[in-house]
Amino acid sequence: MTDKTTPQAALIAALALLGSLPSMAAAQSDNTSLWEFTGRAFDINNDDVLLYEERHQVEGECVNSTWQPMSHQVKYFRDDEESAFATKTLSYTESSLRPSFEFHQSEFDERMVVANRDDRQLDIAWKTNKGEKKTFETPVNQSVVADAGFDNFVRRSWPMIQANETVDFRFLAPTRGEHYAFVLEQTSDSRVSADLVLEIRPSGFVTRFLVDPIILGYGADGALTDYVGLTNVRENADQNFTAHIRYQTKTAVDCSLTP
């Protein structure tokens, strides 16, 4: 995230915002379980350079034999540090595709908070790394995807993806307070060895020429294995890291990730 938000920068940075606020925590259930996985982010041009590690904990439950997330916590660590340099929390109480979330990177004193209001509006409060405060009230509908909701959107679209169909959706750019048209489809990429390789790219006439696509890898079970593109983690005051993140499951769920 950066306060120099051209529309194209905001679009791709929004996708990078790939865990629950105390006031938004999902209700506990006897059927809840924990899905744990890690993501190791390597320099996009040098797989030997580890930039940071993400540690994910997703609490959810099996509903009709399919995994449903409730809350999600992410902590970001550098290889030589014991304390997290950034955190993200998400709540899927209102929607698995449009979660409420908070992302905080303390070293830049930057915070993004998005609250889902009855799944009709996303209230956005952004404190930039320059100390500015910006707010937006963004109406949404069922076609809109926000933040890590894209991962659930991929799994919900699994039958269409496996049929090699193009899936249209809109993605939230929180630093602009707007959402934009995107497409999700199968692709191939020499950097990703996965059962299914996907591309997310803007479908607008102008933005599709200005924004690099995000490349995703998924296992046959529906778990994310790879993310290649711009991340939500700042490299410095002016730009974010571009990385290849490789994900590995630590604790699996007891039911199917896909419908």
Rank of each mutant, 00 (worst) to 15 (best):
A10C: 15
Q28L: 14
A163C: 15
A84K: 01
D80G: 07
P159V: 12
T242S: 13
L11K: 02
N152C: 11
N45G: 05
T93C: 12
A9C: 09
S95F: 06
A41T: 14
G219H: 07
R155P: 02
F205D: 10
T207L: 07
I200D: 04
N64S: 06
A223V: 02
E54D: 14
W126G: 07
D30M: 11
T251Y: 03
E36A: 13
F182G: 04
E53Y: 00
A237G: 11
E165P: 09
K88D: 06
T138I: 05
D226W: 02
Q162L: 15
M160S: 12
A84D: 06
Y76N: 07
A146M: 09
S91D: 07
Y247P: 01
L90T: 07
Q239E: 12
F171I: 01
G229M: 03
L18E: 03
K75S: 09
T89F: 09
S100A: 13
L184K: 01
T6H: 09
A26Q: 13
Q68V: 04
L216M: 15
V233C: 10
G222P: 06
S29A: 12
R156Q: 10
T6D: 08
T38P: 09
Q8W: 02
P69K: 05
K130S: 10
S29D: 11
L257K: 06
H104D: 08
N45L: 09
S157A: 05
G149H: 00
R191K: 13
R170F: 05
D254I: 13
I161Q: 00
Q248C: 12
T38C: 11
L196K: 09
E110L: 02
P139T: 00
D48S: 13
S20L: 08
F77N: 06
T258W: 03
Q186Y: 12
V154I: 15
T66G: 03
T251R: 08
Q142T: 11
F205W: 13
N46H: 14
A220Q: 13
C255W: 04
F150T: 11
E185N: 05
P7M: 05
Y92P: 01
M70T: 07
I12C: 02
Q57A: 15
V145N: 10
D238L: 13
T128G: 11
D123M: 13
Q68D: 02
A146K: 00
R98M: 03
A25S: 15
T249L: 12
L122C: 15
T225R: 05
V253R: 06
S71H: 06
A16E: 03
L90R: 04
I44M: 07
T2H: 11
F103Y: 10
R98F: 00
W158F: 02
T249C: 10
I44E: 01
F182H: 02
I214V: 15
L216K: 00
R176S: 03
F150A: 14
D238N: 14
I161H: 01
E82S: 15
T175K: 01
T231S: 08
T242F: 14
N116H: 08
C255Q: 03
F205L: 12
A13W: 02
V253G: 12
D48T: 11
F101P: 01
C62Q: 02
V49H: 07
F153H: 00
Q186T: 13
T135M: 13
D151H: 02
Q8M: 05
N64G: 02
Q248M: 08
E107C: 14
H72V: 04
